[in-house]
Design a protein around this nucleic acid. Structure first.
Lengths: 335, 335
DNA sequence: AAAACGAACGAAACCACTTTCGTTAACGGT
DNA sequence: ACCGTTAACGAAAGTGGTTTCGTTCGTTTT
């Protein structure tokens, strides 16, 4: 069932049918209704590939998980963002295409090639840790891109992330209000931009409240996982200088740290208060429930969609949007 | 940069280039190499839409989340399955297209229409709770479909789910070995097929071990969420008949039940032992860590991909595959 | 009544590729 | 020298739409 059938059923030309589909104004009302009715009855739907072929617009958004394979559907933050993004971009008439990196990595293909192949109208790129070069090729190529937690500099790109300095500020402030003057930090060492910002923001916040950063109260983790937090915490305990309050740069890190603490007979929050970051679902179910800073993933995803839409449809400057974080107080700092 | 450019650069016809791309045998080795070299240098990639248009194959798999909107990227089980599925289907050369239900629900479009529009080669449909009619239209249409946790009967469909009866059997057996003779159940009442199977399997398993099902030891939850488990547990506590062991048909339910127990001063596992189902990430971080039955999501996803591949490429009978579950012992039953 | 005009519609080129079928030339066999 | 065969390649007809540019015809203007 294609446009030709519809045309002949309605006794008009294919051009006319096409114009009706695309809301051209130069069609009489009676014919429009007649054709519409036939399309309805036959459940006709135009073919997206034929359409894409002639218009160069696919109404598809490519989704790229940048970074070593751990950033995929399993990543809680990513999942929330993409969920919100999907809702909003769906409302705007786009569908999501997930590039499968498996096959094409082995064949040496890259994201740009995939984007061209499918003629996606734009891409959202979400970054975990280190980012492969091919992501920046894509960015530089002029395909409209919006980056989450990654600095994209292409002329048709923008990027969005939480205000990470403010995240740290909020936790330090929270500790300070609770009377803590002795605050440690756990986070990955050579890390993504957001993580760097969190650490720098942490140091800055300490200063702001009249405390001074102390390298002895920092413990660097290899990665972002629970296990990494566990290791980092153990090293901090064994190192001797145990702070009374601790900011872990991700919830998983915090959860791992709590496990290490518990193993050594230390109690949260009595012996050490702790706050995480991200507000993944698991925070609510730990013991004690973890105080954390929520990244506003709904807003990030939604903004990403709207920004990308603008990027695809009008000229725009490259810019970065920061999204306000929110402290979520649970039980891991007492109270 | 299209096939015509390549052809003229190489001094051959477009037909020849096309044949080279598609590995036709009737091309001389020298010309093949020459053309290949040019394609390499120009980074040429054929257009997927043109290709789809003429071959009717898009190499795209449609992903449909069936059920009331809660089944999306936020659903842990779904996410794990789709992740494994994506890996395997990616290896086979397919990419994933997520239908955005937002827009098209409001416009009265359905899954079948979307599938036709994009000419997806097949679909994976993942079911949470109740399933809208449009899913069965898709199933019946002959588009190759594979269902996860949903019984699809179309002639080009298969479905996969965990062996839910065995899940229940394994938990009852576990409790039995630990000496419990008094086992309760929490689960949704009017529920999806897997949930029904779990409940029936539970009853059957009790009989098998010489215990008898007791309605007083069942508490039905409205849904699948933590809150639902909390409510159901409270009702059970207030109802008076508190079993010493409890099987919750999902981890979130179990986590909610644990919260209700703790609130009433009851301890897990001392006062009541509990096991959940699914093995979501949070199980590891609850207090105590939750013993549960792991659905083998890797295997489910992978099998789904391979089955769908067969469905798309050869004639096959409709059938159902059951996947073996695995008990994961943590701390919520003592020991 | 002739000219001008606008509304409604269609012819045809185009998008980038696939695939069938035909053509050509070289080669081996007799 | 002639025929049959095969290897290597190209012409052209699809595939299902979109869009430009006419064309036709009824209506208004002068």
């Amino acid at each position: 069932m294609n446009i030709k059938h519809i045309a002949s059923l309605a006794g008009v030309s294919v051009a006319t049918v096409s114009k009706i589909i695309n809301n051209y104004p130069d069609i009489g009302e009676e014919t429009r209704q007649r054709v519409l009715k036939i399309m309805e009855e036959t459940k006709y739907r135009p073919s997206s590939s034929a359409r894409t072929l002639s218009t160069k617009k696919s109404h598809l958004i490519g989704v790229v998980f940048a970074g070593k394979l751990n950033v995929d559907f399993g990543h809680p933050f990513f999942v929330q963002v993409i969920n919100a993004f999907k809702k909003q971009i769906g409302l705007l008439g786009y569908d999501l295409l997930f590039f499968s990196n498996e096959k094409f990595l082995e064949e040496g293909e890259d994201y740009l090639a995939r984007s061209n192949y499918f003629q996606v109208d734009g891409c959202i790129v979400i970054s975990g840790d280190e980012v492969e070069r091919s992501v920046f090729d894509l960015d530089a190529s002029g395909v409209p891109c919006i980056g989450i937690d990654i600095e994209l500099k292409g002329k048709n790109s923008c990027y969005i992330m939480s205000d990470n300095a403010k995240i740290s500020l909020k936790v330090v402030e929270h500790f300070y209000m609770l009377g803590y003057r002795d605050i440690g930090y756990i986070g990955p060492e050579r890390a993504s931009l957001p993580m760097q910002q969190r650490e720098e923001g942490f140091d800055a916040a300490l200063e702001k409240f009249g405390m001074k950063p102390d390298p002895m109260r920092k413990s660097y983790s290899g990665g972002y996982q629970e296990e990494d937090g566990y290791e980092a915490m153990r090293r901090m305990i064994d190192g001797g200088e145990l702070p009374r309050a601790l900011f872990a740069a991700s919830d998983l890190l915090a959860i791992g740290a709590m496990r290490a603490l518990r193993e050594r007979g230390l109690r949260v929050p009595e012996d050490v208060a702790i706050v995480g970051c991200d507000d993944i679902e698991a925070c609510r179910y730990t013991f004690p429930p973890l105080t954390t800073v929520k990244q506003d993933t709904d807003r990030i995803g939604k903004m990403a969609a709207m920004l990308l839409f603008d990027l695809m449809n009008k000229q725009m400057d490259n810019r970065c949007i920061q999204v306000e974080p929110e402290l979520v107080v649970r039980k891991s700092c007492g109270g």
